[in-house]
């Protein structure tokens, strides 16, 4: 299932845009835009999403190339971690008061 917004019927495809705000940070999704090809998508993304130095790097991905988890599965798909609080450090209380632990 692709990202929402791509109808597959428009003259220019939809692209999802990701921007790295600064060195040391991940690219983060900022929005989407229409463009005829990847080069134009990068240029349009620069003009649309980085008019005020918001980024040092841009990714564009065709919206129909993005696969998302099944929205109807809702909670079930993410059920596995539920009840497994032993995966979190706060589960272990006996070390309370012991330094550097």
């Amino acid at each position: 299932m692709s990202t929402p917004g791509e109808t597959g019927t428009e003259a220019w495809p939809l692209w999802e845009v990701f921007v790295r705000a600064n060195r040391g940070l991940s690219h983060v999704h900022v929005g989407s835009l229409h463009a005829p090809d990847a080069d134009m998508a990068v240029r349009n993304a620069r003009d649309l999403y980085t008019r005020r130095n918001e980024g040092v790097s841009i990714w564009v991905v065709p919206a129909d190339a993005v696969t998302t988890s099944d929205p109807d599965a809702k909670g079930a798909f993410f059920e596995s971690p539920a009840g497994k609080n032993y995966r979190h450090a706060v589960y272990y209380t006996k070390s309370e008061g012991v330094k550097h632990l």
């Binding site: 929402p4 917004g5 109808t7 019927t9 428009e10 003259a11 939809l14 929005g31 989407s32 835009l33 229409h34 003009d47 649309l48 008019r51």
Partner: peptide, 18 residues
């Protein structure tokens, strides 16, 4: 730019840009 951000947001509801 603001128009384009908003068109993108509307598209996620199932209406096309064109």
């Amino acid at each position: 730019g603001h128009g384009l951000y908003l068109y993108s947001a509307a598209q996620t509801l199932g209406i096309g840009r064109e």
